[in-house]
């Protein structure tokens, strides 16, 4: 598998410094699980952050009392123990899961076992709650060969393909590929033939559909 559409420098450096809120970070981290190239780039950004951190001026506060407090905790045996790693959601053993971590733990199971909610025209969604209060995050399943209604964006939209593929004005997107869209892009993604397209979609503003009817029922669909 070769990923061809990657995370932009802006997003990746914001993810590295911790500025990026949870919803966007989920899409970036899931792309990173599928893309060794971007993991190398992330390492660069973390190295830059580390150097800038090293260059921060030292706090002039008296650290003596801090050390006194801290060194007492070192003797506490419970502080010497590494907490057990968080157990992720285990996928069925036979084949690699469609949804990589961290996404699989967010939705609670792999793609097949999910409770998909109909969106109309054969499309389904699974909303994913996050704590950031800014983004809206969902898994989408578009039937093979079918279009997503043409729309533009009120803000930023990240779409990460997990199964099947879609094509639009910017090219063809397969498993691992991520598309970053903004106010300037108007597109009509069409799912590739042969396999339903499952993707993770993150937005921070409602989509602007071209069709009047869709704009009317949009609040009901919550998209």
């Amino acid at each position: 598998m070769n990923v061809r559409h990657h995370v932009s420098d802006d997003l990746l450096s914001a993810y590295a410094t911790g500025e990026l809120v949870e919803g966007w970070s989920l899409a970036v981290a899931t792309h990173l699980a599928l893309c060794p190239d971007c993991r190398n780039r992330l390492r660069d950004f973390e190295a830059i952050a580390g150097e800038l951190f090293e260059g921060l001026p030292a706090s002039t506060d008296d650290m003596g009392s801090s050390w006194a407090q801290l060194s007492q905790r070192l003797a506490d045996p419970s502080d010497g123990i590494i907490p057990a790693a968080r157990q992720g959601v285990v996928a069925s053993a036979s084949r690699a899961p469609v949804l990589p971590e961290p996404l699989r733990s967010y939705v609670g199971s792999d793609a097949l076992a999910l409770k998909w909610k109909p969106l109309g025209r054969g499309a389904y969604q699974v909303p994913i709650p996050t704590g950031d209060g800014v983004t809206s995050v969902r898994l989408l399943r578009i039937p093979a060969g079918r279009p997503v209604p043409e729309h533009s964006h009120g803000g930023r939209e990240l779409t990460l393909v997990l199964a099947g593929s879609f094509s639009d004005e910017k090219g063809r997107f397969c498993r691992g590929d991520i598309e970053e869209a903004d106010e300037e892009l108007q597109h009509q993604p069409i799912a590739g033939a042969g396999e339903d397209c499952i993707c993770l979609a993150v937005t921070d503003a409602p989509l602007r559909f071209k069709s009047r009817l869709l704009r009317l029922i949009q609040p009901v669909l919550g998209i």
């Binding site: 598998m1 911790g18 809120v21 949870e22 970070s25 989920l26 970036v28 981290a29 899931t30 990173l32 699980a33 599928l34 893309c35 060794p36 993991r39 190398n40 992720g88 996928a91 690699a96 899961p97 469609v98 949804l99 990589p100 971590e101 961290p102 996404l103 699989r104 967010y106 996050t130 704590g131 950031d132 691992g176």
Partner: peptide
């Protein structure tokens, strides 16, 4: 992030069967 933003920090897991190694 976890203390002040009350948000999770999603991170990839190199031991996940879906993880694509270099």
């Amino acid at each position: 992030i976890s203390a002040c933003r009350k948000q999770k920090r999603p991170e990839f897991d190199p031991n996940d069967p879906a993880f694509v190694p270099a």
